[in-house]
Amino acid sequence: MTSLPATIFRELRDPLNLVRHLPTLLAVGLVLYAIVAGGYVVALAGFALIYAVFVTGLNIFMGLGGQASFGHNAFAAISGYTSAVLTTSYGWETLPAMGVGVLGAVTLAVIIGYPTLRLKGHYLAMATLAIGLIVYEIAVQWQSVTQGYTGISGIPPLGIGKWEAASDRAQLIVLSLIVILAMLSAWRIRNSRFGRALVAFSGSEDAARALGIDVARYKLAAFVVSAVYAAIAGSLLVHIVGFVSPEVFGMSMVIAGFTMLYVGGIGAVVGPLVGAVMINLLPETFRGLKEYQDIIYGVALIMILIYAPGGFASMSTLWRGAPSEDDTIARDPGLAVNALEAKP
């Protein structure tokens, strides 16, 4: 089994590859710059890193498993609110509060995943959309716990025991470590029996079943695993910002997540980081456009889907060694099918 460091080393030895990996290096560079420089860019880099974790989860369910979920904000919300309530109202420490939050999200993922994952295509997408909306509505209405639109403030920062990541810089470093772990785990999942099973049924459910892959079971597992990433991101978000309200985990989280997933490159391990950094940091260069954020996301998404369906990270397919010139065919199953059928 090839290890991640070995692959990175091999990839970077060739100067030509440096060009291919430019988006990734740029993303990492921007985060490092934020850590060193501090100031306003720190908050943005923090958001980018948190979203990188969230999108890594989406990437496992959507990029590897080939499924669609519009409701992963629900898992972020469950864990985020659990963290917020346990630390502020009950004086819990950050880490155990996050743990309970993630467990809660996993439980919800199993309960809703079991029946809904039997649905296919649009039906599954609609079901997950409904779940996101329901959890949002609960966050608004259950005022005794969530304080409705007012939200919960005074949430403590990340920390372990007595140590707290109080400074912006410390928070960024902690977040960077978490993102590295998220990428490493995604890499290991992708290059394992488990991860291959997911890519298998996203390619052909019949072939996967014929080879003994229990598709229903693996779909549920992928859903739950991706919910764990979303939940961790949700908790990180409330601890970094120190405040939570329903809007934090609204539909915009899903839209932002999707944009980052496709801009970065769906299916690629580094895609979520590249996408999250690009979407969070680059629009800042055009400050005046802040109010038009959703429009920019939308336009970016459409442009990417049309002109670069593999996303920016497709220039640097860190999943594997370099795919060849016929990569486009492989990336578009429809094209591949057409190519097959064209043969006599």
């Binding site: 394992s192 029996r193 488990f194 291959r196 890519v199 298998a200 390619g203 019949d206 299916g267 492989a330």
Partner: peptide, 24 residues
């Protein structure tokens, strides 16, 4: 019915699914 986005090697490795055990 191949897994077109995977390599030849990975396709055959998936064939080993029922003969292997490693979990998540």
């Amino acid at each position: 019915q191949l897994f077109p986005q995977l390599t030849v090697l990975e396709n055959v490795m998936i064939g080993r699914h029922v003969r292997t055990r490693a979990g998540l």
